[in-house]
Design a protein around this nucleic acid. Structure first.
Lengths: 262, 262
DNA sequence: CTGATAGCTTTAGGGCGTAAGGAGACGGGA
DNA sequence: TCCCGTCTCCTTACGCCCTAAAGCTATCAG
């Protein structure tokens, strides 16, 4: 599920995203607000962190706040806007200062690992549509952080743009694999290993001659399984995904270096 | 929306995925089937191609076939399984033979462009969860195709595994950006340019001092806009996404080359 | 005190996936 | 020939989703 953002009138969305902590709070008729946008957004984030994007419904958020789902519409125009606000708020967790004393490659490595772990802390972020930038303050800030590192490479703007995209795609994809691997067993009630075993046993039975039909894949799986340790207690798929992340990151950094060298 | 696959009993799923064109078709009591799994899958693919994954409902597919939504459950155990079948069927479109006469880099470049365009032809494929492999014949085949190219590099299996992942993440992410950029205006009734203009105008008004707060981003956007041609009739965001794809691909290939040399 | 207003609720309408039960068509055995 | 078991397909129904609309009530300005 890619969750699309709200597109009510631009002015209201932007005001919500960029609202500065509290604008004087004049006294007005009617009951005092029992909730606040911040409270709602925080609650929604906690819910999404704990139970995933699929469990994020207006009713569920309302319930956590002791209100009906409809109560939220007083503060937030739609679920889409709420997701935008969650997204931009949570991006604020990302570190912003990566010193360049040790060179851009070291900084970029740390940045990538930080970002990767951020995605794993908030897997639902990976389901927020990237169709169009949300244009919130923290989105700007996180982009600023990355671009600052990359300017150290001396590459021109179009190339930096391409690298920015590639890094984000890589991180989102890689983290997405791990996070879905983690959540799928929970969703289906079958553990990783069990699922894998059941499927591959059935597969051999139903589709014989796999090794002959797909020799390169067979080679890859054989060689991978052979070098795969079982000491760390991680599920099979997650361990492989982590290794792939490190390998892929190294390849990417090499690629940037080669591009810089020109 | 990441669509999770079905996980009915493994045997039935696998049988559906690997079923060989027609197993004798014995005569049985009861009315003749008016539909078939193939017909349903093809119809569902056509629907998803035309109107996106969000429009793919059992009712909608049934309607296209002149049946109720529930009629499909005679052929397919659940929507999840249907999505698996769609996914594996459509993967069959991918070319499989990339000669290595011109070297792996040339082959990989063509492969990447082919795959990228495949994703743009079937954007809904990007919304199919990658949590666990579907393990259908065409998934195997497409992986086989890529691994065959990559074995030419002489890299070891773990590294090839990392590169495979990185390439897929990059392609899926990059194509996803373009496809969402394309579908979002349709979904919201606002064109790309309009949306962008409205947002950035409002942004400048509501969040002044952007350039000072985010100088690196301002530099990047200024420099990009300056070099951006307007001759090809493509919407702004799509043109940029295409350029980023080519840049990113070059960086990645350079990275693989460096790793090989490494 | 009065009237306007804002917070919140309930109701309702149009989606969704799918469980359950029933109608009718058809082939095979008696 | 007739009946019965089986199979396709339908309708109904449940519980979830987002959100429009209308109504209740607490609160404040005048």
């Amino acid at each position: 599920m890619v969750v699309f953002a709200g597109q009510g009138d631009a002015r209201r969305s932007m005001a919500l995203l960029w609202r500065s902590a509290g604008p004087a709070e004049e006294s007005r008729p009617g009951p005092k607000p029992g909730l606040s946008v911040d409270l709602i957004v925080d609650t929604a984030i906690a819910l999404a962190d704990a139970e995933g994007m699929a469990a994020l419904s207006m009713r569920a958020v309302g319930e956590r706040l002791g209100r009906s789902g409809m109560a939220l519409y007083t503060y937030v125009p739609s679920k889409g806007e709420l997701v935008d606000l969650m997204y931009d708020r949570v991006l604020g967790e990302l570190p912003t200062g990566y010193g360049h004393e040790e060179g851009w490659r070291a900084a970029l490595t740390v940045w990538a690992r930080d970002t990767w772990e951020f995605y794993l802390r908030h897997p639902w972020v990976l389901q927020v549509s990237q169709a169009r930038p949300v244009l919130g303050p923290n989105e700007y800030l996180s982009l600023e952080t990355l671009v600052r590192i990359l300017r150290e490479t001396g590459l021109d703007a179009p190339r930096i743009r391409g690298v920015v995209g590639t890094l984000f795609h890589f991180l989102r994809g890689s983290a997405g694999t791990v996070s879905e691997v983690r959540q799928a067993p929970a969703a289906t009630g079958v553990s990783d290993e069990e699922w894998w075993l059941a499927r591959s046993a059935t597969l051999l039975e139903i589709a014989p001659g796999l090794t002959e039909r797909f020799p390169a894949v067979a080679w890859l799986e054989g060689a991978t399984a052979a070098t795969s340790s079982h000491d760390d207690g991680l599920p099979y798929l997650e361990r492989e995904a982590r290794k792939s992340f490190e390998t892929g990151l190294a390849v990417l950094l090499d690629g940037i270096e080669a591009t810089v060298a020109g």
